[in-house]
């Protein structure tokens, strides 16, 4: 089974409040922030690795390909995913300002034509743009079924399909998609028992969360194939459909007062705030 996992680097999600805006409101400034793989994308890599683990007799037929579109520095995040255990990497050079979800989907669609994967696994959204569009656009472009917001995935031993529990409003919806298909993952996909390929021993528990790259993993990653491409090489139409006009800072909340007793609290809520 061949899986493509698109990934993106994002400024440290724990410091999203430290992203600054240029005075003219035209640019974002990331000075002093570390770059990390988008957490949801890391979960997608983890999911791919859990799915192919122990699957089928011929492990050599399994391949997890990580692809990113970004500047040369995004090599670090691709290498990180290779160190986690992915087999092969691709970096398409590109700048966020020249990309929108459509351009990204077009680029990955081109790679899909080239690589013919069985499955595309990706994060449900990047935590920088928070748009939650690329996966669905890509599935539509390819004419593939989409199972978005996956919290649980189970595959039969022959890996021909996946039964996906989706986290949706009002509960959980379960769908079965036949490969080739696209699955976007939600946070719960990295809980210990969320991925079941019916091949790994049933008592085997994964750790909670995406795995860390080990030191030997990092050494190995450097020897794994990493192909560098351009949007031009791939013949991607780079016309954007959404134009960014400006950025601004939302009104900030400020801290209020600390009260000593619940009596005071109830009184304030009733008489001052009038919300109770």
């Amino acid at each position: 089974m061949k899986i493509i996992v698109p990934i993106k680097r994002v400024p440290d999600p724990e410091k999203a409040d430290k992203v600054r805006i240029s005075e003219d409101g035209k640019q974002l400034i990331f000075d002093g922030l570390d770059w990390k793989p988008n957490p949801f994308d890391e979960y997608a890599v983890e999911t791919a690795l859990r799915l192919v683990k122990d699957s089928g007799a011929d492990q050599t037929a399994n391949e997890v390909i990580v692809v990113s579109i970004g500047p040369e520095e995004a090599t670090h995040q691709v290498l990180w995913c290779l160190a986690m255990g992915a087999d092969r990497g691709m970096l398409i050079s590109g700048d966020d300002r020249e990309l929108d979800a459509t351009v990204v989907a077009r680029a990955i669609a081109k790679l899909v034509k080239k690589e013919s994967p069985d499955l595309i696994l990706m994060g449900k959204q990047t935590v920088d743009g928070d748009s939650n569009q690329t996966a669905q656009m890509l599935a539509g472009m390819l004419g593939w079924p989409q199972a978005t917001f996956a919290g649980r995935i189970e595959t039969p031993a022959d890996l021909s399909s996946a039964t996906v529990t989706r986290e949706v409003d009002g509960g959980s919806a379960t769908v079965t998609v036949k490969f080739p298909a696209l699955i976007s993952v939600d946070v719960r996909i990295v809980t210990p028992q969320a991925v079941n390929n019916n091949m790994s021993p049933p008592d085997e528990l994964n750790r909670d969360g995406a795995r860390f790259a080990s030191l030997p993993g990092i050494m190995k990653a450097k020897k794994k194939p990493l192909e560098r491409l351009t949007l031009e090489d791939l013949g991607v139409d780079t016309s954007q459909r959404v134009k960014t006009i400006s950025y601004s800072r939302p009104a900030a909340r400020s801290g209020g007062i600390i009260l000593e007793t619940v009596e005071e609290l109830v009184q304030k809520l009733k008489e001052e705030a009038r919300v109770l």
């Binding site: 400024p11 999203a16 992203v19 974002l28 134009k243 006009i245």
Partner: peptide, 19 residues
């Protein structure tokens, strides 16, 4: 022109759809 939140609500972005 549409305003939409990014970066966990720490940045508002104004966009125009050109299609």
């Amino acid at each position: 022109f549409y305003v939409r939140p990014m970066y966990a609500g720490n940045v508002n972005c104004t966009v125009q759809i050109t299609t």
